[in-house]
Design a protein around this nucleic acid. Structure first.
Lengths: 357, 357
DNA sequence: CGTTAGCACTCTCAACCGTTGAGTGCTAAC
DNA sequence: GTTAGCACTCAACGGTTGAGAGTGCTAACG
């Protein structure tokens, strides 16, 4: 009993119908609304076969059919047609992305919020790791004699700043000296290349005032580590309430509980991401709390090995076609934005770049 | 029919019982669990009186009594006893407040998250307005030849930074010159004192390169305005799911919908805040979406007229005693934190200051 | 005269039906 | 191979019923 063209068409119709209505689909519905001119009885026979093959499930005898996880998998892998974003959607997304330049974490947060607003789905994102990204610039600025700000730029547009309150005052000369030495010793290095050696070098170069120096270096280290720890950003969680599957408060609590611990999400992303867009359906994640939820995940690359992730989370019955297409398109836009091209355009308030696709 | 001591005691018992159990309280429950040695029948008579006075409501004939909004009001104003925070709570709060120094918005966000975590309630907060706060320092830093960061410090510890991508490169000399001029012309002023005059002065002082200068000044203006626009921060919203009154998804959606528009919240806060802690019960807010929710609000003062707000949102049946006390204590801590005392202690990793109370 | 025991009354809630309707699987005819 | 017809199943809906909680009222008590 193979999966001939007709079976595939029927399966697709059922899955898409179910995605749209959230109601089990019966044979009559398919008979009426599809191009195949078949009677309900014939469809029923085929549906029986599809169920035997494990692609459909019958919630109970007198209900229609619902896709199984296997069914969704097949749909995503080979049935699903690419959703074509409408001009309106593209416009909306592009104009929403005309952001001011900001530090990385704020930018990624806003980008996630924008995407969540457009897809009406909860969105996860991680900051790009800078494992192999080089420190472009490192600066210390005196806010007042007892407060310093350390600003680190890595890769392109990856910025991080930290504040430091000192227990004793410093002067401008000291800060300038510090800046020169920090630049000389740390700029051009990747995170992993910063070793105890460099640090000792800086210490001996500055000489004296160990207390402040130690604090500054600690902060630098912290900032660099944070650049790398790929903090997980979650936006638009309450969008899940739009889905009828979350009319049960317990399910909402379960999912929200899982979200509470961001590390879980981080692990999930790391475990499941590979190049391009991945779709993780229900139990495929091997996480009990997510067994009725799916994740569509995409990585964005900023060159130099810097990589982050963006994803959409929703019920297993989500519009995968739309999710995958939006995410693909969006990922490209994010790459451009974070690589800096975008900012300049935004600054000039001209049209967002048009060369894509 | 006045409100004698006995009636007050009964009312208090009913309200506190209801706050704890979320179930209407019957006469027998009060008769058993309170110190007044009265029979259920007597309590019933009193309850009848209290209902007539508009302080209690009977959901239906065979249910117990539930406080009316008026009842809660009376409770908050004159019945409620101050909740004494336990040593454990204080310790937890204090240790959670050992934050690193950061920009203001991040700090306030974290402080809100901490408080929300401790109270298990959604928390709102606004950044302090700097209407009358003076600009302490203003600096432009060159990240790379085409990227500038503008850092503004106002009041004590009120920091804001902005990034600017330039369409043409600048050099260190230009930046230095810019810094001197910005400092000379803007430091020491309050926001309202910055006029077109100052700006023109700066422009003519720098001379030439209008394009960059305009962009920088725009950014400065933006940063200062943002310092003043009292952005509303909302943390721990999903805590409302702990309350049985939000077992109805529709209510959750309604409240979340209201939260979506932060301006609403901002207006609400402005309209209802006065010195100290205010309690806004249900319909008192005059906002339809909040008619079944209450808000406990407190202002924190940073001196120089700088003022922000922190508040707790929850169902009308919330533990006002606890909310008010926690908020009072917390507000004091926040004031210390934002005034900077706290940071130094945190930096030294010594015990958080002990002189409070 | 305030307090209390007793009792009839009211109303919600949960459990327990039939009934209805959607959808199926099977059979027999085309 | 396809389809019409039909008996069957099962969730969902609505009405009924009984239990339980709590009340208000009345009459008795100290």
């Amino acid at each position: 009993m193979g999966l001939d063209e007709r079976k595939r068409q029927i399966l697709q119709a059922i899955i898409e119908g179910y995605i749209n209505t959230a109601e089990p689909i019966g044979s009559r519905t398919i008979a009426k609304n599809s191009e195949l001119n078949l009677s309900a009885a014939t469809i029923r026979n085929e549906m029986g076969d599809l169920e035997e093959m494990g692609l459909l499930i019958q919630p109970h005898t007198s209900a229609g059919r619902v896709p199984s996880q296997l069914g969704y998998r097949l749909y995503v892998d080979s049935l699903m047609q690419k959703y074509k974003m409408t001009a309106a959607e593209i416009t909306r997304l592009r104009s929403a992305m005309m952001l001011k330049i900001e530090e990385l974490d704020k930018t990624v947060r806003k980008l996630s919020a924008v995407f969540s607003g457009i897809t009406n789905m909860p969105t996860v994102a991680t900051l790009p790791t800078v494992e192999r990204g080089r420190i472009n610039s490192i600066k210390t600025v005196m806010i007042d004699p007892r407060t310093l700000m350390v600003i680190i730029a890595a890769g392109s547009n990856i910025l991080k700043n930290k504040l430091l309150r000192l227990s004793s005052a410093v002067d401008a000369d000291f800060v300038e000296k510090l800046n020169v030495i920090l630049s000389e010793n740390l700029v051009g290095l990747t995170k992993s290349e910063i070793s105890l050696d460099n640090i000792m070098q800086v210490q001996s170069a500055v000489g004296g005032n160990f207390e402040i120096l130690t604090a500054v270096l600690e902060l630098v280290h912290e900032a660099i580590s944070e650049l790398d720890n790929s903090e997980v950003i979650l936006e638009g969680v309450t969008n899940i309430l739009r889905f009828p599957e979350y009319n049960d408060i317990e399910r909402v609590k379960e999912l929200l509980g899982f979200f509470e611990n961001r590390e879980n999400l981080g692990k999930l992303i790391k475990a499941n991401a590979h190049g391009g867009v991945s779709v993780i359906i229900g139990e495929e994640s091997n996480i009990p709390e997510l067994k009725e939820n799916s994740l569509v995940l995409s990585s964005y690359e900023l060159g130099d090995g810097m990589q982050g992730f963006i994803g959409i989370i929703g019920p297993v019955r989500m519009d995968y076609s739309r999710a995958v297409s939006s995410l693909e398109y969006y990922t490209k836009q994010v790459e451009k934005t974070l690589r800096g091209k975008f900012y300049e355009n935004a600054l000039r308030e001209s049209e967002v770049d048009n060369d894509g696709k």
